[in-house]
Every structure is written in structure tokens, then in C-alpha cells.
Nucleic acid binder design. Structure first.
Lengths: 135, 135
DNA sequence: TTGTTCTCTTACGTAAAAGTCAATCAGCAC
DNA sequence: GTGCTGATTGACTTTTACGTAAGAGAACAA
């Protein structure tokens, strides 16, 4: 059964994606070189599938969080479905647990930083109030 | 009024701090070069105060979150207390708001990534169950 | 004294993640 | 055809955040 409009091969050009995500063509080609995405080709021209577009989103998310390309690759590999063999399966679950710890650490770091920014903000407001009264 | 045990100048050597935080001496000297910390000197030897130690914590926190040194410097500058002038105050509050947005974005990124890791974990568990039953 | 440990400065090296530049090619407008 | 736009590859350059090595000085132990 096919779903019209769903299985339609809608491709994105490289510039469409650079505009959508605010990155350069160099960056997307770099991600391809790194094996993170695998756009199709028509001749030499890259044709990005919806799945490529989605992967780019994930890459940029990882980038914002300060993960290296190597770490992002690790995460992306996990999304590719669980392996068949038991040992590999256990290894993957260990890796997932590790990533989770890293993310939890980052989350704590964010909360702490936000708390300190709150202090800064309060100090600013206090100083503002002083100024209005006329120091 | 002085508080015995509080105003005591307890200094840290550079290696004490490298061991505590798991960074190299090069890294701490680099942070000084970048103007992020300002340890005292006895002769040429650096003496790190409690405030330096605390700043190092903040720097490493920023680093874990993927902030550049320049961005970390911006944040640290904010902690130095609100400026006296009105224009500067408003500028700082704008900067605080911007950092907060960045941190909120990172937080969303973390939640999304964690959610996907949950999926991976579930898939792994499902596969594990299959294996136990004997595929 | 010799050795070990810690520290310093200066300087060159490096890995990651692109930026930038040059030359080229395909498709379309006029 | 000519010109423009957007795509490609390949190579060189840059920035960030340190690593690493060289050479030297102070402090303490055996």
C-alpha cells in the first residue's frame, strides 16, 4: 500500500537547507564527509531526503550542546536501531546510560547557571531602583 | 570585625587545583592569559584564592555546556556586579536575557535528546526480550 | 651535593570544525 | 551564443583551546 503524498520523493537542495538551518554549504558537505548524512545524488548534485534533513536537526542539536562530531556520531549510530547480538546490545545500553549521565550533568550545569543569572538580574533591578530614587 | 578562619588567606597551588578539577596546568594558565582568573603571586609562583577556585568551577561548567571562552568571559563579567550607569545596566539586563534564552534552548535540546535515548533504550530492551525467548 | 618535585616562561604544534578561494560544470533566460 | 545562478571538488587557511617540549629557578630530602 502506498500513501500518495507521503512516499513522494521530496528532495531538498543544499541551499534550501542552509537557509532553513542557518549553516553554510561547507558545513553540510563536511557532515557528509564525516559520514553523518548520506544525501542522494543526481549527477554530482546532492539531493537531501527528509531523513537527511532530520539528521541535520539532530546534529545541530548536539552541536548546541557542545558535543563533538565524534560524540554526535555515536548518538546518531544509536538511533539506527538496536543490534542483533547480545554483547553489542549490552554495550549499546551502557553507551546510552553514559550519554544520559552527560546530559544530566549538562542539565545541572544549566540550572546552576540560570540561578546565578537570576541573581545578576535581581542585582540589576535593585540598582535600577536606586537610580530612580536618585542616589 | 574580623572572622577568624574566614578571612584567613588560604591559597591553593596550581597542582592542587589541577587534581581537584582534572585539568592541566596549561589550562589554568591559559585561563589566566585569557583574563578569566587572576591568581596572586608570590615571586613568580601563582597562588589561587578561593574566588579563583570558584571561577574555575564556573568556567568548567560553561565549557561542559559548549560555551566558548569568549562566551564564558561574558557570563563571568556579569557576575562582577551591576554597573552604576543606567545605559550599562540596561545593556547588561539585555545580555542576561540573551544568555537565558541560550540556556533555555540547550535545555530543550537536552530534553529532546533524552527522549530519543529513551526510545533507544526501549528498543534495546525489546530486542533483549526477543533474544531471551529465543528468536 | 645530588636528586626530586614543583613551578615558571616562551614557543612551537595540533585537532576539530569549519571558512575561503579557485576552477569547473549544468541549467535556464534572453 | 552570452550571461547568470547555483552546484561541485580540492586545496589552503583560520580559529579555538589547549598539548608539548625546552630551559631554568626555588625548595626540600637523602
Amino acid at each position: 500500500m502506498t500513501f500518495p503524498g507521503i512516499n513522494v520523493h521530496k528532495f531538498y537542495t543544499i541551499t534550501e537547507l542552509t537557509r532553513e538551518f542557518g549553516v553554510s554549504t561547507r558545513t553540510l558537505r563536511f557532515y557528509e564527509d564525516e559520514g553523518l548524512i548520506h544525501p542522494d545524488r543526481r549527477g554530482r548534485t546532492r539531493l537531501f531526503k527528509a531523513s537527511d534533513r532530520h539528521l541535520i536537526k539532530e546534529i545541530l542539536r548536539g552541536r548546541r550542546l557542545g558535543f563533538t562530531i565524534a560524540e554526535i556520531r555515536e548518538i546518531i549510530e544509536m538511533y539506527k536501531g538496536p543490534p542483533g547480538e547480545l554483547g553489542q546490545l549490552e554495550l549499546m545500553m551502557k553507551r546510552v546510560a553514559e550519554k544520559r549521565e552527560q546530559l544530566d550533568q549538562k542539565r545541572r550545569d544549566i540550572e546552576e547557571t540560570l540561578a546565578e543569572l537570576d541573581n545578576v538580574d535581581e542585582a540589576c533591578l535593585a540598582r535600577l531602583a536606586e537610580l530612580r530614587v536618585g542616589t
